[in-house]
Design a binder for these strands. Structure first.
Lengths: 217, 217
DNA sequence: GGATATGGACAGTAGAGCTATCCACTCGGG
DNA sequence: CCCGAGTGGATAGCTCTACTGTCCATATCC
């Protein structure tokens, strides 16, 4: 197919497709002449993935490009591609002078919990940095019983991650497998957040008996 | 204190403080003359909260304004403020013509799980819409065993939410309590996501024995 | 009384993410 | 073989967000 049909099938405008081609998110089509090219079903799927990562996952175009580059790199082990995805998904503030003690305290707290659980995680994992940053921000805002919450999050996320990793079966096609992992990771964040909100409404209703109605808008 | 000291103490530039005042994120200081005003510790805390919601939570300035307006509204019940926070935090794509069947299927799947668990959630909760949108996107991308994953997410998030709601003790000052809930909700998303990445690294290492090193950059 | 700071208004800026226009082709129907 | 729609490529422009800078009349502080 050519670009017009690709646009129709993916729901992405021709102008945007050209833009994604320029920015390296979408691989070029197969050339059939000096200024003609054809695209396949892979391009349709790729475009859908791009839109999902940007719209639902909230990734920037650059982050999406990097994630997809990791997906495409056959050298990269499966969960490294995932790690690459984390790096581009997560953003946390840098520690700046006066926050240093909150930062150090947060890092100690996290390290303690990680050690206590015997987790094997590398400090180079961007998620480590993010987690420390979020924890430091929490404490700076004066939030109480944070360690308890962190422990809860780690316990539950370990269960989630264990099942997620176990569910990853190699589908033969490595690219497809990695795609699934990346999509599951990025969209999983959004789904977890949404489900958390629903659970919070349910639990607040059950435990506090507050009004179930929700403000519109 | 006046705006200069407020800037120094909060780490936010005077220009940005003026901008937040204009946009209604920060309440005006107490007037001491026709063109003079003083600010208090509340303003410092509010500024830190603004930066946290924007930088760590990833909210837009407008979303932050709305969340803070809900925090400030003494009429709004506690967990409605939280709901208001969800609405501005979450964004999902709208269903558009050809995705309709995926959308309907996703909505059925979620409703089924919600009913099975006896959750009391309102369809007006923006999180519902978001969850359906994410699920529909998943299916459109052809991901397998999704219901299983959804069930896992709901089970674990129910546990998380239950503990979070139980941990909310009224600190006397309603505004402070709501602040804590909002911060916990928004920053909690980021922390959960980061912890999930760490847990994924740990579990992938444990279950698959892949290289623990992480790509730099 | 003079340097510095302030509140308020408004214009300007940088980056992200497209979108529109132009051009030289080329494909497909008549 | 011709004509109109479509194509790839390049480049310019647009809209939105989140600031940032400038200006000015006043106010504060030494």
């Amino acid at each position: 197919m050519r670009v017009g049909e690709l646009s129709r099938r993916s729901g992405v405008s021709v102008a945007s497709i050209k833009y994604y081609l320029r920015e390296g998110l979408l691989p070029a089509g197969e050339r059939t002449g000096p200024n003609q090219a054809v695209y396949g079903d892979d391009h349709v799927r790729r475009l859908r993935m791009i839109r999902a990562l940007i719209d639902v996952g909230g990734l920037s175009v650059v982050a999406t490009r990097d994630v997809l580059a990791a997906v495409d790199d056959p050298e990269l082990p499966l969960f490294m591609a995932l790690g690459r995805a984390s790096g581009t998904t997560m953003t946390a503030p840098e520690p700046s002078e006066e926050q240093d003690e909150a930062w150090a305290q947060a890092e100690r707290m996290l390290a303690e919990q990680v050690d206590a659980r015997g987790w094997q995680v590398s400090a180079e994992n961007p998620a480590w940095h993010t987690a420390v940053g979020v924890l430091a921000t929490y404490t700076r805002l004066g939030d109480a019983d944070l360690a308890q919450q962190l422990g809860l999050y780690m316990t539950t996320m370990e269960e989630v991650a264990e099942r997620e990793v176990a569910a990853v079966v190699d589908r033969g096609d490595r690219a497809r497998t990695v795609e699934g992992v990346v999509v599951g990771t990025v969209l999983g964040d959004a789904l977890l957040a949404a489900v958390r909100r629903l659970a919070q409404q349910h639990c607040s209703l059950r435990l506090l008996g507050e009004a179930p109605t929700h403000p519109r808008g």
